[in-house]
């Protein structure tokens, strides 16, 4: 990519998504854009960027942003956070919300749906504890293409084999040729919405638990801080935030602090009136 094309492209992605792309991401950019170029009958990445600069084709814009922002996801990604959800987070919700018997969970980078469906399966497996409770899982993502895949809930044989215990595959998925579709009762537990974390997301309402894993790493410090401060505003005093293994609140926001002995989970710093 020519230097001025690269500068244009990285600014375009930053403006659209807040994602910062350095020259070290050249390989990523080229591997992600090649299929988009083919789809739009453009002979090369250079031709694609030329087209991006020239014509304001909203379909091309959307596909390029989707390609650069959609990330591979796994069921039960990293394992431990979901063990903690069962052992720590869910018991806390059951105790603290016993009076109103309801809670809401937000997956802020839902991608193709593996994370919200993982939470939905855990809640389903815990149904005996949740009789009479209402719970909502909201999954948002910038990429409409990822969200379409999430809504369909159809996964390849490779995707269902990374992280998902076989017992849950058998219980909650239906075979469709060489693909696997997650059961309607699990799909019905998750609502998907197209949201950009750069923009106001207050309309989503309040959340008791927010999963914001492996997405902040793409943003600069200031954007990270703004996103976390706005997430804090959506939470009750005992709200919990999940970040990815390589992410932290230190030096990013004062609103959250690590939950003692629970790596990856953060709680609000100052108790605020509920």
């Amino acid at each position: 990519m020519r230097p001025d094309d690269f500068a244009y492209f990285t600014k375009f992605i930053y403006d659209q998504s807040g994602i910062v792309l350095g020259t070290d991401k050249m390989y990523l950019i080229e591997s992600r854009l090649a299929p988009v170029a083919r789809k739009f009958n453009l002979s090369s990445i250079d031709a694609l960027v030329g087209q991006l600069r020239g014509a304001k084709d909203p379909n091309l814009h959307r596909d390029v942003v989707d390609a650069m922002t959609t990330n591979e996801s796994f069921f039960f990604r990293d394992g431990k956070p979901f063990d903690q959800f069962k052992a720590v987070v869910l018991p806390q919700l059951l105790a603290n919300r016993a009076a109103k018997k309801s809670f809401r969970i937000w997956c802020a980078a839902a991608s193709t749906g593996q994370e919200p469906y993982t939470i939905a399966m855990i809640l389903k497996e815990s149904a005996h504890l949740l009789a009479g409770w209402r719970h909502e899982i909201v999954g948002t993502d910038l990429s409409t293409e990822a969200l379409d895949r999430a809504k369909n809930g159809v996964y390849t044989q490779f995707e269902v084999q990374r992280g998902l215990p076989i017992q849950l595959l058998v219980k909650y998925f239906k075979q469709q040729g060489d693909k696997w579709q997650i059961a309607p009762e699990i799909r019905a537990m998750v609502q998907y919405k197209n949201y950009n974390l750069l923009h106001d997301f207050g309309a989503l309402g309040g959340f008791d638990v927010v999963f914001c894993r492996n997405v902040l790493i793409y943003f600069d410090q200031k954007t990270k801080g703004s996103i976390l401060d706005r997430i804090a505003k959506l939470m009750p005093a005992d709200g919990l935030l999940y970040l990815g293994g390589a992410e932290t609140v230190l030096g990013v926001t004062e609103k959250f602090q690590p939950m003692p002995n629970q790596r990856g989970i953060y709680q609000l710093t100052a108790a605020k009136p509920a």
């Binding site: 044989q157 490779f158 084999q161 992280g163 595959l169």
Partner: peptide
């Protein structure tokens, strides 16, 4: 557990 072929090292590790 149950691995469906074809598999790769990532699937084996995950399982």
């Amino acid at each position: 557990e149950y691995i469906m072929k074809p598999f790769d090292s990532e699937i084996v590790e995950s399982k």
